[in-house]
Structures are given as structure tokens and as C-alpha cells.
Design a protein around this nucleic acid. Structure first.
Lengths: 335, 335
DNA sequence: TGATAAAGGGTAAGCGCTTTCCTTGTTACA
DNA sequence: TGTAACAAGGAAAGCGCTTACCCTTTATCA
């Protein structure tokens, strides 16, 4: 059987209180006793039961992470950075792939509540407000990453999508592009909408127009991106550059270009968003707007652990600035 | 405060035993009482405490997953499939990114033991045998995926790497290639070695020789793949085809080719291994050897839950066959 | 009709920790 | 020398469940 604190106490000739104190660095225990207890624990390979100590009033040191899908490189990176920081602070991560499906989300949240996780980080899209509100009423800390839900009083970390779209447009305009198309995910998604809005704004400022038919909505897949790009490219006045609202779509756009015999970036410039690993791997490497995903992951964990440790209950809203990463998929338009 | 089983019992006018039985579907409780208890629970939004029930002798319904890095698409996919199956069976997954670093691995294993996870799935490379052996001695079920450690008596799911390498070679040979190079990760990794061996074997069978200098070892990165490919391509008799031991490397190889002005697949055929999402996204789409990663994830969870539920304690070793996925990166050599 | 079993439910002892007082022996200091 | 203060450690209640038994009813049937 696994040794318990009683075993250790008995063998060390002390009470369980003492053993507990040693493991938690509390109270005052003599060095001699400490050493003895540690030695015995070592010998028996004793590991204090996290479940018992959680029940006895401590935390579970577990955080739940709700994301649509780890297979998506963006969320894989997010997961990694969140986990890294959590681990540094002594927390474990249990991951939940919701597929943006409300049913699954509900199921996961229930499970996480039963598990008595100390907090939940949500990056998931649909999230019925009701669900999350209940969590908050339940007093379990919730923090949002990469998704804004202003109705919720929860700490949030996000990137300035508007600025990102703006930066993308500014760059293309500075390169000399005048006819620019956009391929975006559903505009129901706030961040997509903001990216397009930011782009639009920069175009307006430059006195350029963005006709409605220059904005194509696609589902989230490279094929979708290809299809949308084809429509753009087949128009009478095809654009010389395309802004894709995320890297996956951008890759689809590049495929479409190559299929049509257009060279990227010679005949068509492409710029993406997110700067996932994909961007560096694509050929030509993708110029894209980088989300500071590592910083975001770290921050969101810092925020939620602050609440967990009751250092503060003040909700923060951190907005980070995206950054243009120039690689090889955009250049001056051919004359 | 969160309601407890006592609250429910009191409000329903029954004992906690009854409530417990209702939630666990045990004993015999009248429908009327059941309904009443459920109604009250619903109302208070009661969720039985997993930590209490775990302490009281049940499982934690948690499985630990040890992988090198979720950012790696292969492991991201593995994580997804493992999590899917675990979730179906009512288990949560806590993920641990070990970076193949022994220290981190040790730390994670300790944490997982404290958490009293019901089992651990390890896909991680280094794994000091000692570590895992201790787990097994500790009676916590361990299952291996994609890593063979025959010294360990643990259930294992893996792919037949030898057959995969063999298939890759056979395909290239059938296409008419005679001079073929290999770019591989460190041969210390068993699976890499087996892939090369399988490849070698097929070459031998075809009466072809694979000179030692046709096998380049690279670190795990596209840049590494590029470098290795360049060496191959710069030789006096450059190969007409290159087998890369995983998709990431294959992408590096394709970059190198393009850099050298070689068209893939016209002037150089490339074949990868793993069939991660990357393969479909690359341009040209990568012909590669697919690991049945979904099936593997599912199987490993099935194996470990079998042990957890004490259905059996017999260790199994499941070897799945990889499969050639033909896309666009390989064709007949130019004449 | 009396014995018996099944249905419905209760009692209470843990599970392995934490933590709030306590107790006791030392030390320091006026 | 008396006492306050501290260091070292112990007793025991309690965290929220589960479960092995046990106790009533009520139905069953020879």
C-alpha cells in the first residue's frame, strides 16, 4: 500500500501534525526532526496525497483550460505557454477540447467543477454567457484569453485585433499596393470583425476604398481560404495583395495563387495573422501579424493565480499589441 | 458556500448514504426519492466533490499525459485523440510537456503521483526506466504510446516503423528512383532507427545500395532538415529522391530544394513520415507515411482504462501498421 | 398465517490530510 | 529568581464523500 502520513509519523516517532508541518513549511520544527522525517519519506517514497490535502481545505493546484481544439496550431501554442507558466507556479493543466460546441463545453465545465479545479481559463468561442456566469457565481475564478466577453466580469487577456488589421493594411499600402482583398473567417467572431475593421480603417486613412466584394468570408480551413482567394483572383480587377485573417487561411490563399500560376510574392502578396509555427514553415515563409501568444498565456495564468491565491479579486483586462513579422510573402506589387 | 451532500440530504429529508447512492446508481432507492434528490441538487446546483469521493476510495478519473511538446503537430494530434477517448470514458487529461528533459519529467511524475491520477500515458522519449519502473511498483498503471521500452512491463501501442520505412522505399523504388537519400533524426531514437532500417531493407531487396553518406542525421527542425538536404544535394551524384524521417524534416528538405532551384516533385521527390496536418498544408502537399495516430490514441486509452478498472492486468503490446499517403511531393524521376 | 425475502433507507467508520488550539520545556531578562 | 516569550511538537476535529452493515416495512408464498 501507499504510505500515508500516519506511517511516516509513526516511524519518525512524531504526530501527523508534525509531518504535515514539515511538508508545508509551517510551524516550527527542529532541523533534526525535519531531516528524520524527510529521510523516512524518501525511503518509503512517500508522496503526500493531493486529494486528501485538497479535501482538508487546500487547493487542488489544477487549472482547467477550455479551447476549441489543440490540433489547431494557434491553440497548441497557447496551451503550451499556459501550461508552462502554470507548471512554474505549481499548477497542473487539464485540457478540454470543446470544438466550440456548447454541449461539450457544458459537460467539461461540470467535470471541472466536480474536480474542484482552482480556476478555469477559457479561450473558447461560444461559451454561453450563462455557463461562465454560473462559474463566477460559484466563486471559481475564470479568466478569458483571446476572447472578449465584456458582459462578464472576468479577467481577460487579448490582443488588439483592430491594431493588427491596421498594421497589416499599413504595411501593404506602404509597399505600394492599391487593390487589396481580404479573406476572413465568419464576421460573427469578434476578433475577425475587428481585424477587418482595423484593415478598413487604414485603407480609409490612405484614401483607398475597400469594396464589399473584396472581402470574402470563409470557413476555417485552408480549402476555404483557397476558394475565397479564387473568387478574389477571378474578378475583373484582381487584387495585388490579400490579407488573410489567420495563417491557415493565408496558406489556403497561397495554394490558390500557385494553382492559378501566380507567384507569391512576385505577383501576389499575402499577409496572414497569428504567426503560428505554420507561418515560418510555409513556402515562401509567411509575412504575418504576430500575436504575442507566449506573453498572453503567461499573463492569463498570472491573472488567474492571483485570484486563486486571493492576492486580489480585481478583474483586469490586458490588451497586448500585435506585431508585424516580415517574412517572404509580401513585397512591392509588380509594375 | 458550495452545497455538500449533507445539505442535499437534509433538504430531501434523507441520509447522506441515500444521496450518495442516487448519484452513484447503487443500492435501491425509490423513484420518488430519486426525483426529489435530483430536483434539490439541480436547484442548488450541487456537484458532488470529486476530491472527497476520490479520498473516500474511488478513482480520480484523471489520466496524465507525458509528451515532449504539444506545439509539435504530431503530439498535438496525439493529445487530441487521447483526450477525446479519455473524455468519452469519463476521464480528464492533465498534460505535461517534458521537452524530453529528465528533470521536468521527474517533476511531473511526482506531481501526478501526488494528484493520485489513475494512470499515466507516456509518449516521452528519455524516460529514465527507473522512473517508470517506480510508477509500476507504485501500482499506478502506465501505458506507452509511440515509444518502445521492452524492458518495461507496460502496455504499449506503437506503429511499425520498420514497415513504414520499407513502404517509403518501396514506393520510391517503384516510381523508378535509384539514388535516394535519407534525412533522419538522431539514430538514438529507436523509431528513427527502425525507419531507416526498414528503408535500407527495401533498398537491399531491390538490389540498390544506400551509401553511408546518403544518410544524413539532423536535429529536429526544418532548418536541420534543410541543412541535411543541402549536403545531400551538393554531392557529386545527388539523389533524385529524399526520404525524411518525419514531416517537419521533409518540409525542411523541400525548402532546401526550392532554394537550390529544384522543383519538387519534378526534379526531386520527397517523402515524409507521420502525416501530420503539416503534410496536407505544405506545397506541394507532402506524400508521406501516415501513422494511424487516432487509432493509437484511442487504443492506448482503452488499454490503460482497462487496467484502471481492473478488468485485466495483462499487458498488451499493440503494433499498428503505417500507411502510405500519396500526395504531390513524389513522382517518377526526370529522365 | 407465519416465515422469508426484497425494497428502501439509515448508521457510522473511515479515506489522508490540515489546522486550531494546547502543552511543555527553554531562554532571556529585569 | 520569577516570569514572559518563544521554540518544538501534540490532540483532535473536520473536510465531503463511500460503503459495509443493519433495520424496517411490505409483499410473497407455501
Amino acid at each position: 500500500m501507499k504510505p500515508t502520513i500516519y506511517d511516516i509519523a509513526r516511524l519518525a516517532g512524531v504526530s501527523t501534525a508534525t509531518v504535515s508541518k514539515v511538508f508545508n513549511n509551517r510551524g516550527s520544527i527542529s532541523d533534526k526532526t525535519k531531516k528524520r522525517i524527510m529521510a523516512i519519506s524518501e525511503e518509503l517514497n512517500y508522496q503526500p496525497s493531493g486529494v486528501a490535502s485538497a479535501l482538508a481545505g487546500k487547493k487542488t493546484f489544477t487549472i482547467g483550460l477550455l479551447i476549441p481544439d489543440v490540433m489547431n496550431p494557434f491553440f497548441a501554442e497557447m496551451t503550451r505557454h499556459v501550461e508552462d507558466r502554470a507548471h512554474e507556479l505549481g499548477f497542473n493543466l487539464v485540457i478540454c477540447n470543446t470544438d466550440n460546441n456548447q454541449q461539450k463545453e457544458l459537460k467539461y465545465i461540470q467535470l471541472l467543477r466536480q474536480k474542484r479545479v482552482d480556476g478555469i481559463v477559457a479561450a473558447t468561442g461560444v461559451s454561453d454567457e450563462k455557463l461562465l456566469k454560473e462559474l463566477i457565481k460559484d466563486e471559481i475564478p475564470v479568466a478569458l484569453i483571446s476572447r472578449d466577453m465584456s458582459v462578464l466580469s472576468a479577467s481577460t487577456v487579448l490582443v488588439d485585433d483592430f491594431a493588427g488589421g491596421h498594421a497589416a493594411a499599413s504595411y501593404l499600402i506602404a509597399l505600394g499596393h492599391r487593390r487589396i482583398g481580404i479573406v476572413t473567417e465568419s464576421l460573427d467572431i469578434i476578433s475577425s470583425r475587428d481585424r477587418v475593421r482595423g484593415f478598413q480603417d487604414a485603407m480609409d486613412n490612405a484614401g483607398l476604398t475597400l469594396a464589399g466584394d473584396q472581402v470574402k468570408v470563409s470557413d476555417f480551413s485552408p480549402e476555404g481560404g483557397s476558394r475565397a482567394a479564387c473568387e478574389l483572383l477571378d474578378s475583373t480587377h484582381p487584387p495585388t495583395a490579400i490579407f488573410a485573417c489567420n495563417d491557415i487561411l493565408a496558406i489556403g490563399v497561397m495554394h490558390a495563387a500557385r494553382q492559378k500560376g501566380l507567384s507569391v510574392p512576385l505577383q501576389l502578396s499575402v499577409i496572414g495573422f497569428d504567426n503560428t509555427l505554420l507561418a515560418a514553415l510555409s513556402d515562401p515563409p509567411l509575412t504575418t501579424i504576430a500575436q504575442p501568444i507566449q506573453a498572453m498565456g503567461q499573463q492569463v495564468v498570472d491573472l488567474i493565480t492571483r485570484e486563486i491565491n486571493e492576492i486580489t479579486s480585481i478583474k483586469q483586462r490586458i490588451v497586448l499589441l500585435p506585431e508585424l513579422v516580415i517574412r517572404g510573402s509580401a513585397q512591392e506589387p509588380a509594375t
